[in-house]
Simulated scan of single mutants.
Amino acid sequence: MKKEARIDSLTLSIVQVTPSTRWAFVEMVDDQNRTGFGEATLAGHDGDLLRVASELFAAVVNTRLKETGTMFATLRLETLARAAVVSALSHATMDLLGQARNCSAAALLGEIVRESVPMYANINRRTRSRAPADFAQSARVATAAGFSAVKIAPFDDVALYGAHTNYDKKLIDAALDRIAAVRDIVGRSVEVMVDCHWRLNVAVAREVLASNVCDGLYWLECPIPESPDNLQDLRALRSFANSRGIRLAGCEQAVRTDGFRPFVKAGAYDVMMPDIKYVGGMGEMLEVARLLDSHGVEFSPHNPSGPVAHAASLQICALVPNFRRLEMQFNETRYFDAIANMKLPLPQNGKTRVSSAPGLGIEVNRTELDSLTIRRLIFNREHEKCNATVA
């Protein structure tokens, strides 16, 4: 009788890939010496991730792989850091289970409906200089690479976050200039998405939506904070946006299906953007997709981070009928491909092939990962006990 695999060790590695960008990876090794990876990147919360991992790794190590799904589904995810670590553990588990059964994570989770995934390029973080001309240049490079949709986050230094206070009109005008530069360079045949990162209030969001610059924009994302008090304001903004030929998008940090239900019920968004790093697991991501499909909401995963989250997102998108495009960080750092050992399928004409290799289909370059790691937490199973070390 074949021995049931157990989790032998768990590692969280925080890696520095640009002066302003860090990614967080979970490494899971089973007692048959197979290794699975997950991603828990959460900007500005390295300490929270390490604290949560220290607690959860102790509970998860030595668990049978086939029992982890039930465990993860019952864990409380009261903070985004906790959701990120549990989500990463789910990715790593599916990676290992796929390796054990010699099939892709997608094949384990359901019926594959597509072999390649349409993408859009997030060009924001590659644009180090924030001049409109530099945004336009980034958009030019992305479209030359075959992308027919791009996203920017142009509202630098705007910090209203829903508050009814005076604002600096120059900052809004600067954002509109960046949007205009991108739209002028790519033309109307390329879809342009604009991410607000919750920085606006209702009045300013309406002003932005009403501007000629945004006429027919593909979507406006996360204009105001996603609090229960703002649900009706979001619904009203969506209605106004739609009257201008613009979709409203959001919910990138919602956790589990319960996190999406209030926004679905309120009719807050045309497009919802669950993130594989925060939603609570790969199975949970599919439950969210089913919820959105049942209410006619477009499923378009948030995916601006590292290569492991990208690989896991591709596996999910291969399964979801009500899907149009997946986000991809574009050309921010060479380490995206280097950490993945140059094994991730490259986008061609705006689409990426879904790997059919076992698990997530990613091969992590240990040398690159170790050279970039700035903090690390390790739990090892040893005679039913765990030893933790922090580097």
Results as ranks from 00 to 15, higher is better:
R381P: 02
E252G: 00
A83Y: 12
G98Y: 06
T18R: 04
E67N: 15
R101F: 10
A180C: 07
N365V: 06
F37M: 07
Q329Y: 00
I152F: 08
S305G: 07
I378Q: 14
L50W: 11
A340M: 04
P19F: 08
T373M: 08
D173R: 10
E382C: 11
F263D: 11
N230C: 04
F155D: 01
R101W: 13
L248G: 00
Q329I: 07
T21L: 03
A391P: 05
L360F: 04
R101I: 00
R375K: 11
V192S: 04
A40L: 14
M1W: 05
R140V: 05
A40V: 10
P307C: 13
L234I: 10
L372H: 15
R128G: 02
N122C: 11
N303E: 06
H45S: 06
A84S: 14
Y167I: 01
T367H: 14
S355Y: 01
C222A: 10
N242W: 09
N365K: 07
N212W: 03
R238Q: 11
N387P: 09
G44T: 04
E191P: 05
I339S: 07
V213Y: 07
V52I: 07
L96T: 15
I112H: 08
D233N: 08
L50T: 04
F37I: 00
P154E: 13
H383F: 15
G38C: 10
Q253V: 09
Q99K: 10
L326P: 05
S20M: 06
R178N: 03
C214P: 01
R188D: 15
R247G: 03
P321C: 15
R261V: 03
F57G: 14
F155M: 08
M71Y: 15
V204L: 09
V117P: 09
S294M: 14
M71A: 12
P321S: 15
A92D: 05
E327R: 05
A391T: 13
L171I: 11
C214K: 03
S87R: 07
L346F: 03
P347N: 04
E191Q: 15
D156S: 05
G38N: 13
R381Y: 03
F135H: 14
V117Y: 15
N349M: 09
V288C: 07
M71H: 11
L314D: 04
V29D: 10
C386K: 04
L369S: 10
D46E: 14
M285A: 13
P154A: 10
D177I: 02
V158T: 08
R22D: 10
E67L: 13
A210N: 09
S313D: 10
T352M: 14
R244Q: 13
R375G: 00
Y278M: 13
T333F: 05
P347H: 13
M282W: 14
T367Y: 12
D215N: 11
A210W: 03
L319F: 11
V117L: 13
V182I: 01
G280A: 13
A203K: 15
D370F: 10
A268G: 12
H45C: 15
R353V: 12
R82N: 00
A340K: 05
F25C: 11
A181K: 09
D258T: 14
E368A: 11
N33G: 06
L231H: 07
F72V: 01
A159Q: 09
A142D: 02
P19L: 09
A121R: 01
I14C: 02
M272D: 14
